[in-house]
Computed example of a mutant assay.
Amino acid sequence: METKNKMDVTEDGNKLIIERIFDAPLELMFEVWSSCEHLKHWWGPKEWPMKECEMDFREGGQWHFCLRGPNEGDESWGLATYKEIEKPRKIVYQDNFSDAEGNINEEMPGMLVTVELFEHEGKTRYVGTTLFDTPETREKVVEMGVVEGMGSSMDRLDEYLDQTTAQ
Rank of each mutant, 00 (worst) to 15 (best):
P88D: 01
G69R: 13
G110N: 13
M111V: 15
N103F: 01
P49K: 04
F118C: 06
N105L: 08
G61Q: 02
G69M: 10
F97A: 10
R68S: 14
L67W: 10
E84S: 08
K83M: 11
K87D: 10
A100I: 09
W48M: 08
G69P: 12
V113I: 13
D99R: 07
E86G: 08
I91H: 00
Y126M: 14
M111H: 10
H120N: 13
Y93R: 07
M108K: 10
K51F: 04
L112R: 12
G102W: 13
K90C: 06
G73M: 06
E75R: 11
F65C: 07
L67M: 15
Y93P: 02
E106T: 14
V127N: 01
G61T: 06
E116I: 05
G69I: 11
T114E: 04
D99N: 15
E119A: 06
E52G: 07
F57A: 03
R125I: 04
S98R: 09
A80H: 01
M50I: 06
G102H: 01
E47T: 14
V127P: 02
I91F: 02
E75F: 08
T114M: 01
N71W: 04
C66K: 14
W77R: 08
P88L: 00
P109E: 13
E47N: 15
E121C: 03
M111G: 12
D56G: 00
M50Y: 01
D74Q: 06
V113R: 01
N103L: 00
